[in-house]
Design a protein around this nucleic acid. Structure first.
Lengths: 380, 380
DNA sequence: TTGTATGCGTTATCAA
DNA sequence: TTGATAACGCATACAA
């Protein structure tokens, strides 16, 4: 009975308009397969028919269903950029902005669509269903949940902006440590012997790498034959990880309230520097700030206090945010080709999806010092 | 033959492992329908069986295919935020960042996924195929292509941040004109009689609305019984739309090169103000800047020239970017609840999708002045 | 070169 | 409460 019912729709003259590709096919007097070929620009189709079909498509305003199209291919046609930190953190940070620029450029030329996942909840949905063909993980932390789960799923994943200690993911990351080393060496080369490190909380991979690099830089500067230091001086070359030590991060967070994370950094650096000044500590003559935003706070505090940069104090930032060149003075900072990094990540991810190649690698991007005017020799 | 071949797969004991929901069904000894019910938390399923199925789901690491799931429902389950201006422009602008925050919050609690479309190419793909169930259009311009096409398609669309002259789209927009009026009145109330307008190119809706509001504000200030001006003074109350007039935008663009649009604004305002100073023009004693970034450039130029704000010059910005309160001096500016606007837009879009209601409306969000320290009485 | 038939993974209808 | 099966809209191997 059922079958008959079904056939009656087709065979009998019930003019229930066919939807989708079939409607186009009927209207053009061809089969659905041919319409499909036209849609996918297959070469094996008569130009005349092709044209005719396309006209019908336009006239009927037919739009193929993206999901249905990918269903037989076993794909979704979507790629997600995912994080657990919230959209605010991601979108307002020039680091990610540049990253996405490169990532988006490559996706733009690919057949994939771009999805964003910024909350634990969305992440949960993303993983509990087959929603995307690949994921680009940003702003990850070692202790993020989902990480193990993702590793077990056979879903192409690239991690950008951080290394995970033990991971099978392919990762793309700036050479944070190398950058910090270069920064210290730059300062030491200028003659500084008291160098402070203004770093974020050590939870994130970046902060850890920064700290490691900073310490290694100090070590190299101290032992450098080019820049030998006296024993007394060695004592003075020491890290001042103020953000973690002098003032608990949580404390400042309370004060700043609704500021975004980046402005929080600015304010924190400002407050810390002022505090140190007030406490009469023997201040460094130069600071390595692990973020341009920290450096900006430092600059602001120094300006208010009457300290002239770089005459009285040298500051080197990290990130080369667009504003860096507009500051007083223009900020010396560490620059990396983030756009290219994002593009590479996208290319790799697409390759993993289409070619099923899955040999994990770690790609490191060099950081170079952009010398502007916030660093100079120490005061005599 | 073919049919037999097919049946042989099923009926004969060829153990070709079924994929997807069927695999789970077989493993659990139930039908696919039952698994589907478990997946969708239908109440009409035996708790015992439910538990058994869920165990199998976990063991097999089964993840339902998102697209296939939505296929019978005729939906995609995706919503896109779309623009033609590129990702850089969107993501680095606090205006959109806040917008997305609200938009994302609502989507987070909905069953929809979030997609981003930032280029003409992606937009073309988005429209040529049924990829999303709804679109949130941001940073639109009156002359954007696709607009007519989108209007003809019966696809739920909301426009945020701009009004379109004649449109059937539902729009959400800050009251730019009202804000500009308030800004001028604030300044006039302080006693200023020469007020400049630092505005963007009139291509965008916002710039036009800003200009209109500014002029209306001047009109009101001039005719206000509370603040009567002499005829001579009326002559002086005039807009100085420098960004469009004094210096063609294209010219400055060349200079700034790779700066992002926002930093371009900062530099442009800086350059324009310096130019005016150099040309010995009779400068306004106060400026209405249609962007905080323009205001920042103004502040920087004033500082360099030795003009003290607000003693010698008053500046009011627009947008209340996070940095506004950290400037020298803290910037007086116009603030709107963008997060709420984004959330409202998302709610409206979802409603249009799920309830098929499509009665276009225009929602306006008030702008209020945040008085900080960059505005004061004019110099005597 | 075109059409037919089959399958993609899921939901929904209906009968059991 | 459960199971069989049609349907969702499209791509493709194979036959014609």
């Amino acid at each position: 009975v059922v079958k008959e019912d079904r056939r009656s729709r087709k065979d009998k003259s019930e003019p229930r308009k066919a939807s989708g590709i079939l409607a186009v096919a009927q209207e053009a007097g061809v089969s659905a397969a041919t319409v499909s070929r036209v849609l996918n620009k297959k070469p094996t189709v008569d130009p005349k028919i092709c044209e005719r079909v396309q006209k019908v498509i336009k006239r009927l305003k037919y739009r193929p269903h993206y999901a249905a199209r990918n269903l037989p291919r076993g794909q979704t046609g979507n790629i997600a950029v995912a994080t657990l930190r919230g959209s605010q953190v991601i979108f307002s940070n020039p680091f990610f902005t540049r990253l996405f620029e490169g990532f988006g450029e490559v996706l733009d030329e690919s057949p994939f669509n771009l999805m964003f996942c910024t909350t634990p909840r969305q992440m949960s949905r993303l993983l509990s269903a087959h929603t995307v063909d690949g994921i680009c993980l940003v702003s990850v932390r070692e202790d993020d949940p989902f990480l193990d789960e993702m590793e077990e799923m056979e879903l192409p994943v690239v991690v950008v902006g951080a290394y995970l200690r033990e991971t099978t993911f392919t990762t793309f990351c700036p050479d944070y440590s190398g950058g910090a080393i270069a920064a210290v060496c730059h300062l030491a080369g200028l003659g500084h012997t008291r160098i402070g490190h203004l770093n974020g909380p050590l939870l994130s991979y970046k902060s850890q790498a920064d700290r490691l690099g900073f310490e290694e830089g100090i070590r190299r500067a101290v032992t450098s034959p080019l820049n030998p230091l006296s024993d007394a001086e060695r004592e003075l070359v020491r890290p001042l990880s103020t953000l973690e030590r002098g003032r608990p991060a949580g404390e400042v967070v309370q004060e700043v309230g609704s500021l975004t994370a980046l402005e929080y950094l600015e304010q924190a650096a400002y407050a810390i520097f002022k505090d140190h000044l007030r406490m009469g500590q023997e201040l460094p003559t130069a600071y390595v700030a692990s973020s341009d935003f920290l450096a900006i706070g430092l600059l602001r505090a120094a300006l208010e206090v009457g300290l002239e940069v770089p005459r009285d104090l040298s500051v080197i930032g990290f990130g080369d945010i667009p504003m860096a060149s507009l500051l007083h003075p223009p900020l010396t900072t560490l620059h990396g080709d983030l756009v290219e990094m994002g593009a590479d990540a996208a290319r790799a991810l697409i390759q993993m999806i289409t070619q099923e190649r899955r040999s994990p690698r770690r790609v490191v991007y060099p950081l170079s010092i952009i010398e502007r005017s916030s660093t100079g020799p120490p005061p005599p």
